[in-house]
Design a protein around this nucleic acid. Structure first.
Lengths: 244, 244
DNA sequence: CGGATCGTTGAGTTGTATCAAGACGGGTGG
DNA sequence: CCACCCGTCTTGATACAACTCAACGATCCG
């Protein structure tokens, strides 16, 4: 179905307004964007390597990941995305997908035609800049993860990833104080930090034993935020959030 | 000095034209960009973490790298750049640098004020798109490197990096057939692939012993391109080159 | 109440780091 | 033009982070 001014539009506008201030005309243009909303279950591919998508998508609810596979069949998750993100905006200018994207939880996503996005970008440079900026923040996160995988130990990378989730989920109102929901399997966490699932399991035990986190089900509680940040060598600068 | 229509302008225009076709008006606008050309010697920082630069730069000659330091003082190089690249275009929209950039050889670079770039981007959406695309290709390379560091062994990462240099240098006319100049120390290569300098040294010996590369000084020769590509699990898709 | 998925544990293996010392090589000053 | 020096490359020995394999326990769901 094609929804007119919907929750999806509001989510996108709120996100963009945290980056640039929008004029009424610009908001109106965004509200006019046709968004096709769909539900997907866990572990569904949204786009695949080699695809030439004609639309991008807005993640409305749930978590998705971006991943690559090596010739040996190993998987590296290079990014997670949370509600409000537009994970494949880059396909606007890079025609062929160099990664795949998949849901890691049940998701609601809204597809938006490239054609419509390009028109808005050509007409409203500020909106174009805001979209551009989103892709730049993604790239900044890549740099930070790469540094972790290349130069930090798995224990620290795990702590770092948890810090990042806390901050990013807070920014979209999905984290309460020191607790958040992380419905991601240990194998997926392993693929993200470049470790084995077995090792991730032991690292999580170590983090619990050291009192850095407490878990129950998919809930993660951080009793001592400061200690976790230190363990993760975490400085939120790279997330380029507004109020900082 | 501020040069008018110079070699720097031509380099930038040629690069952009490999991405989009430019109208005469657009080329004229680009030729009008003030570019301040400077020479830097090896190991000079160009920008540093925390800086708020008011300009971006075009790499005219030499190699530069983008790097981060961990709390423990370890360095991860997250990117190399070659002539024709504009490595810190992202600072147009992300005000605070989250990485540092430095020369790895003597370099010629041309600084361009953000203000001038923003004006051109607002006025010429196609140029804006071309710049945006450059930052997207950088991000794509991050994804590929991350996958290597997280999921491939050091031997394969080294082969992969050599493949990438060959392709990127060819694209700007800096590689002859199967030979190119790689004036980068083993310690820098190590920081790029997330390994120790000692290990890189042994890997290079192994690559030589296996007949995948031959070296003399900073020259690298690739006798069997196909074998090196296989060793590196290298598929140039992620570089998003035009003719492909 | 099976069956599938996910988490946990143990044992053995290996890729890669670290440390230390020596060899090489190219530039600089005497 | 030689001698020195500093950065880079090379080599060996040792240590450990992390992987693989394999099995078992815990959950959740239909």
């Amino acid at each position: 179905m094609t929804v007119r001014p919907s929750a999806s539009h509001n989510l996108m506008i709120r996100k963009l307004e945290s980056i640039v201030s929008l004029s009424d005309e610009e908001k109106q243009a965004l509200r006019g964007l046709p968004i096709q909303v769909t539900s997907l279950k866990t572990d569904s591919d949204i786009v695949r390597v080699g695809d030439r998508p004609s639309h991008s998508f807005l993640l409305v609810a749930g978590f998705t990941c971006v991943y690559k596979l090596t010739a040996e069949g190993k998987r590296q998750i290079v990014a997670f995305h949370v509600p409000g993100d537009m994970p494949d905006l880059h396909s606007l200018h890079l025609k062929v997908m160099d990664t795949s994207m998949a849901t890691v939880t049940p998701c609601t996503i809204g597809f938006i035609q490239h054609e419509a996005l390009i028109q808005i970008c050509d007409r409203y440079p500020r909106i174009s800049a805001a979209f551009w900026r989103e892709t730049l923040v993604d790239a900044s996160i890549f740099r930070e993860w790469m540094t972790g995988i290349g130069r930090r130990e798995a224990y620290n990378r795990m702590a770092h990833l948890l810090c990042e989730f806390q901050v990013r989920l807070s920014a979209v109102g999905l984290a309460e104080d020191d607790t958040f929901d992380l419905p991601i399997t240990q194998t997926e966490l392993a693929d993200a930090i470049g470790a084995s699932n077995v090792h991730v399991n032991r690292i999580l035990q170590e983090l619990r034993a050291n009192g850095l986190i407490r878990t129950s089900g998919t809930q993660v509680n951080v009793p001592d935020w400061q200690k976790l940040k230190e363990a993760g060598d975490f400085d939120p600068l790279y997330l380029h959030l507004r109020q900082d």
